[in-house]
Each structure stands twice: as C-alpha cells, then as structure tokens.
Amino acid sequence: MKKTGIFLTLLVLVAHSALAQDFKATLEKTVTTFQRAQELQERLAASNRLELIANKFADQWAAPYYAAYSKALLGAMETDPIKKDQYLDQADQYLTKAQALTPDQDENFVLAAMIASTRIGVDPENRWQQYGKEFEQNLKKAKKLKEDNPRIYYLQGVSLLYTPEQFGGGKKAALPYFEKAATLFQQEPDDDITDPSWGEWPNTEYLKYCQS
C-alpha cells in the first residue's frame, strides 16, 4: 500500500509539472503573438486566446494578469472613447482576478496604474483628478513592494511627457524617468513569462525622443 501511495503521488507530481510547463509554453507563445501583431485582427485574436487561457488556468496568477494586460493595451490603442472604456472595463475584470490570486504582487499595481492613466485619455478635463490620483497611488504601492521595477518609472515618464510644461511636464521632466527605467530594464531577466518584463522597447523609443 505504501508503494502504491508513493507511486500515485509521483504520478500527480509529474502530471502537475507537465501541466505547468504546458501553461507557460502556451502563455508565452500567445503573449509574444499579441505583442508582435501588426494587424488589429491578429492582436484581437491573441487577446481572445489570452482570455481562454485565463479561464482554463484560473488558479495561475499570470493567466488573468496577461488577459488584463492585453485588454489594457487594446484600450490604449483604441481611439473611440466608448470602445476604449469597454476594453479597460475588461482589463479591470481580469486584473481583479489576478489581484485575488496574488494580492501583494507589484505588477498588479503597475498595471492598475496604466489602466487609470489610459482612463484619463477618454476625457482628460473631467477625469484627471480621479484617475490621476489612482495612477499615483498604484505606482506608490508598486514601488513599496518592488522599488526596482522598471515599469514604474516608465509609466511615470510617459505621464510626465504628456503633461504640459506649465504643469511640470514635458520632455525635460520625463527624461530622468526613462533613463532610470532603461537602466533597470537592462538588469531585469526576461526568461520567464510568469515574471513580466514588458515595456523596454517603448521606453527606449521615448528615451530617444526626449534626448532629441
């Protein structure tokens, strides 16, 4: 009986390991497809696949996180205010699931800050107070958990870049944040899809722009 129990335990462990490997491989392939997509339909299809992954692997933090990430980026790219909000609503729904699985994950707060910042763009005049406050609060929480997360400084740089100079923004104000993010991105490993590492390419482009 003891040998049988050990054998069954080993089978469970092997099956769990195979499932985890399948999850990571599927997630990485889909996220890469989404990030590299040139056409809107290809990007939408990849985002929809990320939703399916989030539903299938509901106990894995990275699954709903990347579903939220894809919807947040779609919202940022969308020009129609109504559709933009709809994408961001979906992003919030998946991010809530990710937060429930791992409450003290700095990346959750970074993504929440990005969503809040994008919300401002729908109606800047009427939304900047509410969502500007949410943006700052979420980045503050992320920084408290992991101060060397480059996406914190990348998002701060973007926010400052698009803030009028008379209110403390502009290229000169944003540059130090993109520079700090660039240094931290170089130190960040990118070999595990469950440890997010997005943002380096746009940060590099913004850095070049602010240096010009």
Rank of each mutant, 00 (worst) to 15 (best):
A63R: 01
D195A: 13
D85A: 13
T118V: 05
E39F: 07
P64A: 07
D59P: 01
P103H: 11
L95Q: 08
Q130H: 08
N55P: 00
S159R: 07
L95C: 11
R151H: 09
Y177F: 15
N55L: 11
L95M: 09
P202D: 13
E179M: 06
R49V: 10
Y131H: 12
D192A: 09
P196N: 05
I193F: 02
K180V: 10
G75K: 03
G169F: 08
A25L: 11
K146W: 02
K24I: 01
P176N: 12
P164D: 11
A67Q: 06
K180H: 13
D80I: 02
P202Y: 13
M1R: 03
L27V: 04
E28G: 02
F109Y: 11
E42I: 10
K172W: 10
Y177C: 04
E78N: 08
L145Q: 01
Q137T: 07
M114K: 08
P150V: 12
K171V: 06
K29D: 12
F178V: 01
D89G: 04
K84L: 11
Q38I: 00
Y153T: 02
K146G: 04
V31Y: 00
L50M: 03
A116G: 06
Q60E: 15
K180D: 11
D148A: 04
R127H: 11
L52I: 01
E205W: 06
E28V: 00
F109T: 00
L160M: 14
T9P: 03
Q90V: 00
D80Q: 13
D123V: 08
A112E: 14
Q156V: 07
E78C: 09
A76R: 04
L88C: 05
A18D: 11
L44V: 06
D104E: 15
L10R: 04
A173K: 10
D92A: 10
A174R: 03
T32C: 05
Y94D: 08
T96N: 14
Y177R: 09
W198S: 09
D148T: 03
A20T: 03
L8Q: 06
L207D: 10
I120D: 14
G5S: 06
Y162D: 11
D92N: 13
E147K: 03
G75C: 07
K141D: 01
F167S: 08
K144R: 05
Y94G: 08
K84T: 00
D191H: 11
T183E: 14
K144Q: 15
K146T: 13
K208A: 15
E165H: 02
E136C: 02
F135L: 11
V110H: 10
Q105W: 14
G5E: 09
V158T: 01
T79P: 00
L10C: 13
P124H: 12
M1S: 12
K180W: 08
F57P: 06
T33G: 01
P202V: 08
Q90F: 05
Y162L: 10
A20S: 07
A15P: 03
P164M: 12
A67L: 07
I82T: 10
Q60P: 00
D89R: 09
D104S: 14
D195C: 01
A142R: 00
R151K: 10
L95N: 09
T96H: 12
Q187P: 01
I6C: 02
A113C: 12
